[in-house]
């Protein structure tokens, strides 16, 4: 366990300012407590002798900036996390999406891609993958590289397989990947419909119109003001009657765009754009 006060609050402000001015990454509207923990964790993990050296490295080493961004933005994700959420996608959302000639889905903040592959499996089982496009974006290029490979640790597969079954999956989960050493490589047919690209929710604009946008466990790291801006971006990027799916503890309820959406059921965090 790391100490929380190794990097002081005013030093964090200096770092965030450097990152914005020198590298164009704007973390100033991120929730502070989490950011502070991530920065202190990284400082401890990478054994910097002093703040000055940490700062210098971040100013001058582009490779290290990438590591910083990856580590600060919490690339933690799972396949079929919250199985009941995926069950609802299967039963209530995919039948609607199936009526479109082309299905465009945006995974915003996809991290290492586990959810994108989960979605591809759902689409394949609903016989919709062939006419779908999955746009998977993240602020940080390193994780996208990994996501596009579709290779995940083998020791996670037992849990993922259980999640998959609870989500209503009927196939043999292991039929979707081949195991090699301690890794599982998911079949290329799943990734053939995926398009990976960097996109920064803080500073980048809408780039297409979608029938479904998933952004799960990303907004918890943003302050209210930034959440509001991102909700506007999503609203703008959704077709009429398109779906927006958030993480299990996130809500649209307090946002300015709430009136333009209707929750599709009481339990899962999925809304439909109605106006």
């Amino acid at each position: 366990m790391f100490e929380l006060k190794v990097v002081q609050d005013d030093e964090i402000k200096v770092l965030l300012n450097d990152l914005l001015e020198l590298h164009g990454y704007d973390f100033t509207d991120y929730s502070k407590a989490s950011l502070k923990r991530r920065i202190n964790r990284l400082f401890t993990l990478d054994r910097f002798p002093s703040f000055a050296e940490f700062r210098y490295r971040l100013m001058h080493d582009a490779q290290y900036v990438r590591r910083f961004v990856e580590q600060i933005t919490v690339p933690v994700t799972e396949m079929f996390r919250d199985p009941s959420f995926y069950k609802t996608l299967r039963e209530e959302v995919l039948p609607v999406l199936g009526t479109y000639p082309v299905i465009r889905i945006w995974h915003a903040g996809c991290a290492t891609g586990e959810e994108v592959y989960s979605m591809a499996i759902l689409l394949k089982e609903a016989n919709l993958l062939h006419k779908s496009l999955l746009y998977a974006t993240d602020i940080n290029p390193e994780v996208l590289e990994r996501a596009s490979n579709g290779i995940f640790p083998l020791n996670q597969m037992k849990q993922y397989s259980e999640n998959y079954i609870s989500s209503g999956g009927k196939q043999e989960f292991s039929s979707y990947y081949s195991a090699k050493y301690d890794m599982a490589k998911f079949e290329d047919s799943l990734s053939s419909k995926m398009i990976f690209s960097t996109h920064n929710l803080v500073s980048d604009r809408s780039f297409n119109e979608f029938q479904l946008i998933l952004c799960r466990n990303v907004l918890i790291y943003f302050d209210r003001q930034l959440q509001t801006r991102v909700f506007e971006l999503f609203t703008e990027s959704l077709d009429n009657l398109g779906f927006l799916a958030l993480g299990s503890k996130e809500t649209l309820r307090f946002s300015a765009v709430a009136a333009r959406f209707k929750a599709i059921n009481a339990k899962e965090k999925i809304w439909r754009k109605i106006a």
Partner: peptide, 24 residues
């Protein structure tokens, strides 16, 4: 604290959730 999230306290005495790595 909800299951499977870290619960953090912000400077303005609000709560925030965090889904980073498990600790211990």
């Amino acid at each position: 604290a909800p299951a499977d999230y870290h619960l953090l306290i912000e400077d303005d005495r609000t709560l925030s959730l965090d889904f980073s790595e498990k600790i211990l």
